[in-house]
Simulated scan of single mutants.
Amino acid sequence: MATVTYPCYWQKKDNGGYWYWLYYASNGKAISRSSESYVNRSDCERSIDIMKGSSGSSVFYSE
């Protein structure tokens, strides 16, 4: 098995057999989880691709 490096995404199955992902920061702590679970692993992978592609998106905040 490959050595895990951080940051990274992990794909897992929940108790219902649905796929979801967790994102781990460089310190090895989970900091994000997919907002939904997926029947197909490929849909879970697509969700990760969308997140990776959003790195240039604007950030908004309110005070």
Rank of each mutant, 00 (worst) to 15 (best):
I50M: 08
I48T: 02
V39A: 12
W10H: 15
S35L: 11
A25Q: 12
S32D: 11
W10K: 14
G17A: 08
Y20S: 01
N40C: 13
W21A: 08
R41K: 15
Y23E: 04
N40E: 15
K29S: 07
E36L: 07
G53S: 15
G28C: 02
S26Q: 15
E36S: 12
G28R: 03
Y23I: 01
A25I: 03
S54G: 05
P7A: 15
Y38V: 02
G28Q: 05
A25V: 02
G28W: 01
D43T: 08
R46G: 12
S34K: 02
S54N: 08
N15D: 11
K12Y: 11
Y24I: 00
W10Q: 13
N15F: 04
V39N: 11
S35M: 08
S26Y: 11
K12E: 13
S26R: 14
G17D: 05
S26F: 12
W10P: 00
A25C: 13
N27I: 10
Q11F: 11
I48R: 11
I50N: 08
N40T: 09
E45S: 09
Y23L: 07
N15Y: 08
L22K: 03
S37I: 02
D14A: 00
S35E: 07
N15I: 08
W19I: 05
C8Q: 06
V39W: 07
N40I: 06
M51S: 10
V39G: 05
A30Y: 04
S37F: 01
Y38W: 06
Y24Q: 03
C8N: 09
C8K: 05
G17T: 09
M51D: 09
N27G: 10
I48S: 06
A30T: 05
E36Q: 14
W10D: 13
I31R: 13
Y18S: 09
G28M: 00
P7Y: 11
G53V: 00
C8S: 08
I31K: 12
A30H: 00
K12C: 10
G16V: 02
D43A: 08
Y20R: 06
K52A: 01
N40V: 03
S32L: 06
W10V: 09
C44R: 06
R41A: 11
I48G: 04
S37W: 03
R46L: 15
I31N: 08
D43Y: 03
S34Q: 05
N15S: 15
C44T: 04
C8G: 00
K29Q: 12
K52F: 02
D43C: 03
P7Q: 13
W10T: 10
N27V: 10
N15V: 09
S34L: 03
G17Y: 04
G53C: 06
N27T: 14
Y18A: 10
R33A: 05
N27E: 13
